[in-house]
Amino acid sequence: MESVFLTFKIRNKYNLLKDADSGYHMDIKGNIARLQDFYVLSVKAPMGVFRRPYYFRETVEQMDYMGTGSFFIVFLVSLFIGMALCLQISAELGNLGLKMYTGKIVGISIIREIGPVSIALVYAGRVGSGMASELGSMMLGHQVDILRVQGVDPVKKLVTPRIISSVLMLPMLTIIGDAVSLLGGYYISVFVSHQSGFFYWSQIKEIMSFENIISGIAKPFIFGYIIACISCYAGLSTKGGARGLRESTTSAVVYSMIMIILSDFILTRVLFYVLGMKV
């Protein structure tokens, strides 16, 4: 079977599909072909924004599903992560007599690292699996074939709105999630750890530097793009009925999570270098 975003000419040239799934040789060829497909998808789909027709309605629908639909779970997860983190940090700092720095450490941890990563992981679980299963069932139900037969580019119609929405919505959810986590930290700091609320917020204010904010905001754009590309690719590669759908949904979430963690480290390193932050 061939995926919808296939570069037929290139595949024909290297004969990549001819003996599909028939042993070791094809495994290597198959993996190269899949990598090539993924590359084509992840480059071609965002470029769709600059070409007619524009799918505004689909993009808004996806933004609603990804953004509004994920709000509650992001709120819940962020609140409890903020509270748990503050609890752990204030306990440890209390032993060292440095409790007054709780706000600062909680703030930096959440804004730079824990907020973007945890929200991206939650988002991959909810939105990534949703995208993969939706596109997967469209593949199995021949709806994607119908689009192709009628001359509609499925990548532009189905993938571009999802990537754009994901890239826009994840940073917004991250900002909200970070704020909620800080509020959770505030609650623990004031009502459990019995510190001054004013001091907590002044510490947070202190760490709201350009470097920290950029460091926390840049990551979700990349994570959103990665999650959407991987999930759409997994969905559009679905074959083989319910079992295939299960596999593509699982692989969408698993690969998204792995890539989030890996890219987080690389991004952190790059941002440290670009923003001139010292280790």
Binding site: D145, G151, D153
Partner: peptide, 18 residues
């Protein structure tokens, strides 16, 4: 040997009911 975009005109000659 046609690409997806080149196939568009060919496909417009048909309709399919799955």
């Amino acid at each position: 040997t046609l690409s997806e975009s080149e196939l568009r005109d060919i496909r417009m000659k048909f309709s399919i009911v799955f």
